[in-house]
Amino acid sequence: MNSPDPRGTTLKAIATTYNRGHHAFAVFTACATFVVITAGALVTSNDAGLSVPDWPTSFGYLIKVPHFVGGVRYEWSHRMVAGSLVTLTLAIAIWTLIVERRRWLRWLAVGAFCTVIAQAILGGLTVLFFQPPVVSTAHAAVAQTFFCIAVAIALFTGRRWVEEQPRVEFEQRRPSLFTLTLLCIFVLYVQLILGGMFRHHGLSWWPHVLHAVVVSFVLAWTAVRALSVYSHIEAVRRPAILMLSLMITQLCLGFTSFLTRVAWGRDAVQPELPMVVSTVAHVAVGALLLATTVILAIQVWRHVPVPFEERLPEAQRDPSAA
């Protein structure tokens, strides 16, 4: 398992320095994203998505505070914190372009900005087209994609990532742990789309519930592999434990949401507190779970890569070419 690099290759490292302020701002942006996702979940759970009928203005104004009652509280607050997040993202992107020497991270920051703009436009389309399930689900999925990007930027700008010499162990098992983490991300995205479609009345509840079994199996398999073989690598162990814990929490919250929303709340005349709390928590923990899985995939890619020669197509594995 601890075999040295079979071809004597070393990972090319670009000298970069840790910038405390930049990293702190990236962490703050990621936290703000989580707040915006939670605020968005509150809008949907309170059935307040269309309480402000116009966009990009709110009751004809860009910022003026409306009569702060009923569904307007949730929708208007969501718009304001989301607007602030666009500003934060612009700031982190420009800061990254100025201070960062890693080219790929600069592109990631620009990608984050493009994603947040796309997300804002999707939010607008949701309002202007009266919440079509596909658009509303895309709005939910892109929100979590942006959260993952924000968390990744926070990770890449962190002291550990910048200064640590990563301990690398090459993976021999098949499927590789990295493949498993990618599979986790894929099944979580499918689950996110199925959940979004159910939440926005585009699908029944059963595909989401059925797929939860698949998600649980894939995530548990990945966590067990990571913890049984690579528990000595802290950067892998910690997200793997967190992923497993969040998955169990998410299953409990999913069951509670099903009870409060589907079983007991079917004929409710308005969203009730247990429904709102359980569904918002389900969305929030779902976002944390996806982001944790993305972190795990990144750390596995860094610490437990597939041997370099296996990444090459068969035809290019000529040792004399090394």
Binding site: N46, S51, G71, Q270, P271
Partner: peptide
């Protein structure tokens, strides 16, 4: 009414 979710 999306402002008052009981209104239907």
């Amino acid at each position: 009414c999306n402002q008052h979710p009981w209104m239907k």
